[in-house]
Design a protein around this nucleic acid. Sequence first.
DNA 1: GAGTCCTCGCGATTACATCA
DNA 2: ATGATGTAATCGCGAGGACT
Length: 205
Amino acid sequence: MNHKVEEHIALISQLYNPGLYTQMVPKQGESKPRRRRKKNTGEGVSGARKRKLSAEQVNFLEMNFGDEHKLETERKDKLASDLGLDPRQVAVWFQNRRARWKNKKLEEEYTKLKTAHESIVVEKCQLESEVLKLKEQLSRTEKEIQRLSDRADRVSTNSPSSSLSIAMEPPFLGEFAVLEGYGDAFYMPPENNYIPGMEWISQYM
DNA sequence: GAGTCCTCGCGATTACATCA
DNA sequence: ATGATGTAATCGCGAGGACT
């Protein structure tokens, strides 16, 4: 234990009743013991300590805290004399008030981040569901392409002038069509959607 | 520049008051 | 009577300034 701490303890012992502080047994792994305060019996130099500040005192301190969270020595002394408190009490009040303010700010920040996180999680779920739908869509489209490709192959092997006829074959719009504004392929029933000959061109003119 | 002392602020903790 | 909560007070530590 260093000199400074010993002095501190001596001072405290002077101010309060002797034997007020005891040595805590350090836990395993802890380097330094922490002194434990004993219960106040009211037998100290100053008698029973005043605990609660009055509502007026707290209001005044709150007003000052609202103006400025830090406390310069001059302001501390002025506040202390105005309120009939020890400057140390004023300093302690500001210290504790800053701690409470910081905690509150942290809680607010946590709530904001939590809300933001939750909405992002919801958005992620929606996007994942969308991806799933699009993958299914892609799979169906690929199957359809394969089917059409197989059909084209069959036609080309059966017809002598196959290369020309395939080249000129109109698009088969019977099963898939792209609807404007959706950018998506929709399944359409095959009946009566086959456009014979070159008439399909007029659909796009 | 290095060492010492002092003061201050902060985080963690304790003791006490109050309330449900 | 008792546990939960709020708060005044304390401890231990580090940072920074003044001084030697």
